[in-house]
């Protein structure tokens, strides 16, 4: 599972973000991008000593300054389930296409599908069960 899939699934969920300088931000994730830049709303900020607090309506955090994010445990199962659903849906659609389009074409190099052409990557195995 990709870290960014987890982050995307965390939208509107509470999270704790610690920056490299030790400051922490507690809030709900509003949005994020592929750099892990994020916006949070209803934020409690603490300094690195943990002895001063600020409340912010909303804040933007540059991804490169982040040390780690802590997200709800339940997200892991939610993301895995979503990925399984997506995979099954994809497999169903592709399987139908392959059995129709590949008939009699055994000997041809199977480059057309799978895009990358890497060994054992979607080129075989899927359609055969």
């Amino acid at each position: 599972m990709l870290p960014l899939s987890l982050l995307n699934a965390a939208q509107n969920k509470p999270m704790l973000v610690e920056l490299k300088n030790g400051e922490t931000f507690n809030g709900h994730l509003v949005n994020c991008d592929n750099f892990m830049n994020i916006t949070l709303r209803e934020v409690y900020q603490t300094n690195s000593e943990g002895d001063r607090f600020w409340k912010l309506k909303e804040c933007y955090i540059r991804g490169s300054t982040i040390k780690y994010l802590r997200v709800p445990d339940t997200l892991l199962d939610a993301v895995k389930e979503e990925q399984n659903r997506a995979r099954d849906a994809g497999r169903g659609a592709r399987g139908a296409f392959v059995s129709g389009g590949n008939r009699g074409g055994r000997g041809a190099p199977s480059r057309a599908r799978g895009g990358r052409g890497g060994p054992m990557r979607g080129g075989r195995g899927r359609g055969r069960g």
């Binding site: 870290p3 987890l6 982050l7 490299k20 892990m36 991804g63 490169s64 982040i66 040390k67 780690y68 994010l69 802590r70 997200v71 709800p72 445990d73 997200l75 892991l76």
Partner: peptide, 11 residues
């Protein structure tokens, strides 16, 4: 205990 964590590769 920390639960579910996403650690940046930088760190």
């Amino acid at each position: 205990p920390l639960g579910l964590y996403l650690v940046k590769g930088d760190m």
